[in-house]
Simulated assay, not measured.
Amino acid sequence: MDKEKTYKLLLKQAGNLLQGEHDLIANMSNISALLFNSLAEVSYAGFYRFQDQELILGPFQGPVACMHIQLGKGVCGVAAKTQQIQIVPNVHEFNGHIACDANTNSEIVVPIIHNKKLVAVLDLDSNDFDRFDQIDAQYLAKIAELLFN
């Protein structure tokens, strides 16, 4: 199955998983599990919640992760501060990268905005270089939006 077909199926599955559930932590938990177990070459899938002007580790699947990230620090912190999706083909070339897992080589981070406020970021890592692209960005953003539908 090609990437776009996979994401269309994941989008539908995510919508079904979240239907009728309004607890954000429960929904983040199921979305991180869905993404981690469905996407090839993904070594981490999870959320960092924006609280008290920093990112705090939320529900995730994968190896242990950093618990606190300052705005503007690392890929997650830059995505949160700029409120722009970050696609990093080689994290070792990203100025200020935070190496929570030394095996990570590429990353994508999607900021989650609700009512014009940063709520969290969705973070996916891969041990492969250049794993993520605009198709990932497009569909991960759509899946993240489902958290508030």
Results as ranks from 00 to 15, higher is better:
G20W: 06
Q19N: 09
V75S: 05
K3S: 00
Y44T: 10
R131M: 10
M67L: 09
A99F: 14
I135K: 02
I56V: 15
G46P: 05
G77S: 04
E93P: 00
L71H: 11
L17P: 01
L55F: 05
L124R: 03
K116E: 15
N30H: 07
V75N: 05
S32R: 12
A80M: 11
L35C: 10
V121H: 06
Q86S: 01
P59Y: 07
H97D: 08
L118Y: 04
T104Y: 04
V88N: 08
N37R: 04
P63A: 14
A33T: 13
A102S: 14
I56F: 00
K5C: 04
N37A: 03
Q19Y: 14
L124T: 02
F148G: 06
I112W: 03
L147K: 07
H68K: 15
L35I: 07
A26N: 13
N27A: 11
L57D: 05
L17Y: 13
K81G: 02
G58D: 06
N149W: 08
D52F: 08
V75F: 08
I113H: 02
V75R: 10
R49M: 11
D130W: 00
V78M: 13
M67I: 11
K12H: 09
D133H: 04
A102N: 12
G62D: 03
I56N: 13
A137G: 09
N115R: 14
N27Y: 01
Q53K: 15
H114A: 14
V42K: 08
F50N: 00
K12R: 12
A144I: 10
V64Y: 09
A33N: 14
E145A: 13
E93C: 04
L34Q: 05
E4C: 01
L122F: 09
C76E: 02
V64R: 15
E107N: 05
A26Q: 10
S43W: 07
H114P: 00
L18Y: 05
K8V: 03
L147C: 00
F129I: 07
T6W: 02
